[in-house]
Design a protein around this nucleic acid. Structure first.
Length: 589
RNA sequence: GCUGCCAUAGCUCAGCGGAUUAGAGUGGAUGUCUUCGAAACAUCAGGUCGUGGGUUCGAAUCCCACUGGCAGCACCA
């Protein structure tokens, strides 16, 4: 990576100056310093604050000058530093590094040759990560809130893979426990209704209606009745299941219904290109005995105790704010019990890190998860929890909490029908996970027509169009590009050269974007970057004729820039889980 | 009460302790197609970075308090 080279160069310069006695360093060596992209292009390609870390102004200015002078002397002599054009100092002691235009342009070939692996780095090579996201209960369709976790998780996984990690994308289905019974009773109600029986909706102990139902105020909401029809078709109009003893009935129907819901969720995920390697079922923890084994282990380790008839685990010993109930007073396991078994299952699979992408309503989970890992003897820093803030729905300019009861829930499928998967992905991924997402449907639909993400796709399609046209005209873009010497572009008109250099600079930033996204677990930088690359290409395209370039040599060089841009745009779109189209339908006037 | 998150242009949002002009998209104004795709490009207008302190040579960025908003604090899942 370019930035690493710059950093090594600066470090070496400081060391050499120190040996010569021209630079004082603290006893514990070089302080940590930043190598960053200045906000303003006139300050060069990279800037470092090393001198300011070593001393305060005005002394920092002296140090900066010493280092800059040294670099200017040595850079031309060291082959590895050929990327540097000039080093200068500015302000309170910044060292600004300007890259060589010739060197920059010549990187295009390597980008094209890297193809779909462009931007890959080795940050995580040899490390494995389990990445869990969505994990919505199989009791109903996934809504636009679950979608946020889905898009963030999926793209984060892609990003981590690009950074070299081995990533398992995982979905945990809570297909055991009370909510499945509840689902069973709800479907049983609909079954009996279908059969013309006189039944009432199921109720809890307090006599309140409890379960999962279609919204009766919305004639299009037939989700649970649809599931019911499917089950009727499978069970001789329900006869097979309704004949069961009462205590088994809810479980059997619930399990069957949950299976259908799960397949529906999987279809929704597939449609949105949210990919998973593993769909893990909570129920399997029971059948394999892992649930009981986990409890045994904790008991043997002395982390369990009885209080008020229930069995608790001492998670507070490991930093959780309170202890958690493992077994209820009626002997049933809690959700936390499954969590314990599941986290152990994951850790025993040998992952170096477990990442959870969770909604803001789960932020109290962090302490509990790390405590659980420690109870099994694993280090707490193996657990990383990425919290995304909630999605609320904006109706008539007012945001309100989504509520099935109020009939203002939107499912992911409904939204995908309206705007399409690519628009959704870009819309969601443009925002940091920390921001509250007020989903304005009217705005999303408008953005669907005029979406920044489409500009990125259009950039890719536009390039594909140029390539098509070139081939039709008898040219060989790829061969010409790889044979070209881009240094010929240095003779271009200033306005053109500026656009060409801006484009290659943008293209070469991909590795840094991937590194940053992987280190901070923030996939949203990719969308911004995609727009930057697309914009750089569009400006280049506007100023620099490709096919009609003034000479064969210039044409070849511009083919190289064009194909490098295509390579990076395709990669970014793929990381974002979007299509990289070769053509797009023209918008209607 | 305790914990986490948010407040930046009309709107939706970036902004990785820095550089006398804080960015993008969108919306507004005005130009640019007999030319490789105008879903593009160019120019202009638009901001007390919620408020008040503090740390620092330097704060939208770090710390504290406050205001407003969201979420959580179950023998629910």
């Amino acid at each position: 990576m370019i930035r690493d080279t710059i950093r090594r160069m600066i470090t070496a310069a400081a060391a050499t100056l120190h040996e010569r006695g021209e630079l004082e360093l603290p006893a514990d060596g070089l302080p940590t310093f930043d190598v960053e992209r200045p906000q303003q292009a006139q300050h060069g390609d990279y800037a470092t604050n090393l001198a300011m870390k070593l001393a305060r102004p005005p002394k920092s200015r002296e140090i900066a000058t010493k280092i800059a002078d040294y670099l200017n002397e040595t850079a031309p002599l060291v082959p590895a530093y050929e990327l540097v054009e000039h080093v200068e100092t500015a302000g309170p002691g910044f060292i600004n590094i300007r890259l060589s235009p010739k060197w920059l342009l010549r990187q295009a070939g390597a980008v094209i040759e890297a193809g779909p692996t462009v931007g890959n780095i080795e940050l995580g090579v040899g490390k494995s990560i389990d990445l869990e996201f969505v994990s919505a209960n199989p009791t109903g369709p996934v809504h636009i809130g679950n979608g946020r976790g889905g898009f963030i998780g999926d793209t984060l996984g892609n990003l981590l893979r690009a950074a070299g990690y081995t990533v398992t994308k995982e979905y945990y289905f809570n297909d055991a426990g009370a909510q499945i019974q509840k689902l069973g009773r709800s479907i049983e109600y609909y079954l009996r209704l279908q059969l013309g029986q006189d039944v009432a909706k199921p109720k809890d102990e307090k006599g309140e209606i409890e379960g999962y139902f279609d919204d009766e105020t919305d004639p299009e909401d037939t989700f649970y009745r649809g599931i019911t029809r499917t089950i009727m078709a499978e069970t001789h109009d329900g006869a097979d299941v309704l004949a069961l003893p009462a205590d088994e009935r809810a479980a059997v129907i619930g399990k069957r219904a949950a299976g259908h819901v799960m397949r529906g969720i999987q279809a929704t995920m597939a449609r949105l290109n949210i990919q998973f390697d593993v769909f893990f079922n909570e129920a399997s923890l029971v059948t394999t005995g892992e649930l009981q084994a986990g409890i045994q282990t904790l008991r043997a380790a002395g982390y369990l105790y009885e209080r008020e008839g229930a069995t608790w685990m001492e998670t507070s010993r490991f930093g959780d704010d309170k202890d958690r109930v493992l077994l209820k007073s009626d002997g049933e396991t809690t959700y936390a019990a499954s969590d314990v078994a599941y986290i152990r299952n994951k850790l025993d699979r040998g992952f170096d890190q477990l990442i959870y992408v969770l909604g803001a309503d789960h932020h109290g989970y962090v302490g509990r998860l790390t405590a659980m890992a420690q109870m099994f003897g694993y280090a707490p820093d193996k657990i990383h929890v990425l919290i995304y803030q909630h999605v609320s729905l904006k109706v008539d300019g007012k945001s309100q909490r989504m509520s099935k009861r109020k009939g203002n829930t939107i499912t992911l499928d409904e939204l995908a029908d309206l705007v399409g998967a690519d628009v959704m992905r870009f819309f969601y991924l443009s925002r940091s996970a920390d921001t509250h997402l007020d989903f304005d449907l009217a705005l999303a639909m408008k953005e669907g027509e005029e979406n920044p993400g489409l500009t990125v796709q259009y950039g890719h399609a536009r390039i594909a169009g140029v390539v098509r046209k070139s081939v039709e005209g008898g040219f060989h873009p790829e061969a010409e590009a790889l044979a070209a010497d881009l240094a010929v572009l240095l003779a271009d008109a200033p306005e053109q050269l500026t656009a060409e250099l801006a484009l290659i600079r943008e293209v070469l930033r991909l590795e840094e974007i991937i590194e940053r996204g992987a280190l901070t677990l923030e996939p949203h930088h990719l969308t911004k970057y995609g727009m930057d690359v697309a914009a750089a290409f569009h400006i280049f395209y506007d100023r620099c004729p490709i096919l009609r370039a003034e000479s064969d040599a210039v044409r070849g060089a511009r083919f190289a820039l064009t194909l490098a841009a295509r390579t990076v745009l395709a990669r970014v779109l793929t990381l974002l889980g979007m299509d990289a189209p070769d053509r797009m339908d023209r918008p209607t006037e």
